[in-house]
Design a protein around this nucleic acid. Structure first.
Lengths: 139, 139
DNA sequence: TGCGCAATGAGAACCGTTGTCAAACGCGCG
DNA sequence: CGCGCGTTTGACAACGGTTCTCATTGCGCA
């Protein structure tokens, strides 16, 4: 499956550093555009294309997590843990919690193999309303 | 969990019927564009916007499954089963198998609640190489 | 300090998807 | 059986996120 791959030595640049800092500053998933806007706002001029490029590269190297919102937009976040994990995201405020679940990992693997699949991967995202949001928005 | 909603009576039309037939004809996930092209090819003239609209409506009513490819494109497929389920998709040929896993459902629910979340939903997709594809493409 | 090449930036290009709005059509009614 | 109304359609413009292009910048190394 070739992921979390060869940390091809990327040349350190001011832009990449700024991006890393920005990501380190928040715990929530953010879109590339959002991150770019945030950087610009704080006076750090970085091209949008650069943000996308770096984000992709970092994601490929496993430095950041990427998930797709239901609308198809990609959102990124610095990994809190190196190991494989999943997220529980609040639909109301974006609060994110990382969770691991060996049971699930094994289950997915087993189910896939039962059907003759190999090189198994999986994506699992859980979302709901966090304690705070759940009270008011019974959407 | 508030999905598979109110089958608001939709007016039967030639286009919708064609779309349903087309979906019934294949077992794999296909993009709206692909389906549209296929219909056009078989002489059935249907507007692209109509395909999108109906696909969305059907998805909202739980008549079809929708998942996002890693590239962010939405792909649809007629549900084989009415109940909640997940998919194991072959990265090589697109072969899809539906699976259910109560254990996982419960796990996701439990984990989310442990963190104070309510109104929990989840998405879980598994992919790998099916028996046929796994042999040759060790990619 | 000078070079070579990766990285960057600005903007155009892409592409899937959604919105617009007039025309077409299904349906219930008279 | 024809009519009118409201839904659905279709062609196409508009959108929004992401990627590409290509000239310019600036690391890293000799």
């Amino acid at each position: 499956m070739s992921e979390a791959g060869p940390r091809a030595e990327r040349r350190p640049t001011r832009q990449r550093a700024a991006l890393t800092d920005e990501l380190a500053g928040t715990a929530e998933f953010r879109s590339a555009q959002d991150i770019h806007a945030s950087l610009s706002a704080s006076g750090t001029r970085v091209g949008l294309a650069t943000v996308y490029r770096n984000l992709q590269a970092m994601a490929a190297d496993g430095e950041v997590d990427v998930i797709r919102t239901t609308e198809g937009e990609a959102v990124y976040r610095a990994c809190a843990s190196e190991q494989h994990h999943h997220h529980v995201v609040c639909r109301g405020c974006g609060l994110t919690v990382e969770v691991t679940g060996d049971a699930v990992e094994r289950w997915a693997e087993a189910v896939a193999r039962d059907h003759g699949f190999s090189q198994v991967r999986h994506t699992l995202e859980i979302d709901g309303l966090c304690a705070g949001c759940g009270v008011r928005d019974p959407r």
